[in-house]
């Protein structure tokens, strides 16, 4: 999964070599294997080898979805979603919400480690007002 290329569809791409930025905008859809990320605007950070190290999606609410072959479907929302490609780590920031199967997590900040399926939710995040953490955990059927 991790080495699969990141494919982007969008209306526009703005590259600024001086600032070192690459910004896709206009109905941006990003796919990497079974991971999908959408937003109004996505900024791409690249390492020295030109590989994508980080994607920052923003929108009314940016959206993330992962449909693993063997596991629960993951859906995430946030005003900002940051995907760290090498670490396979996702940060949902501001009106953050994550659904993992039947479990749900809400707060100002939710972090999700894709390959280890670990979730951490917080009420505080930089630049946002405090948003209480709410979790709904569904007990396993006996």
């Amino acid at each position: 999964q991790q080495s699969e290329p990141i494919e982007v569809e969008a209306d526009r791409l703005e590259l600024d070599d001086r600032a070192g930025t690459a910004v896709y905008s206009g109905a941006v859809e990003i796919r990497q294997g079974n991971l999908q990320l959408t937003g109004a605007r996505v900024e791409i950070q690249r390492n020295d080898a030109g590989e994508v190290s980080r994607l920052t999606a923003t929108g009314e609410r940016a959206y993330l979805e992962q449909t693993p072959v063997d596991g629960e479907r993951i859906q995430g929302w946030g005003r900002t979603i940051v995907y760290h490609a090498a670490e396979r780590r996702v940060e949902l920031i501001d009106r953050a919400e994550l659904h993992r199967g039947a479990d749900t997590f809400n707060g100002a900040y939710v972090e999700y480690l894709i390959d280890r399926r670990l979730v951490e939710a917080r009420a505080d995040a930089e630049g946002t007002e405090r948003q209480r953490v709410r979790m709904t955990l569904t007990p396993e059927q006996q």
């Binding site: 699969e4 290329p5 990141i6 703005e14 590259l15 600024d16 690249r46 090498a86």
Partner: peptide, 18 residues
């Protein structure tokens, strides 16, 4: 040093590896 691509933009980017 600015570049602007527009209209059915399709990007292909290899990810950084750990």
């Amino acid at each position: 040093e600015r570049l602007h691509l527009e209209g059915r933009v399709h990007g292909h980017h290899p990810p950084a590896r750990q």
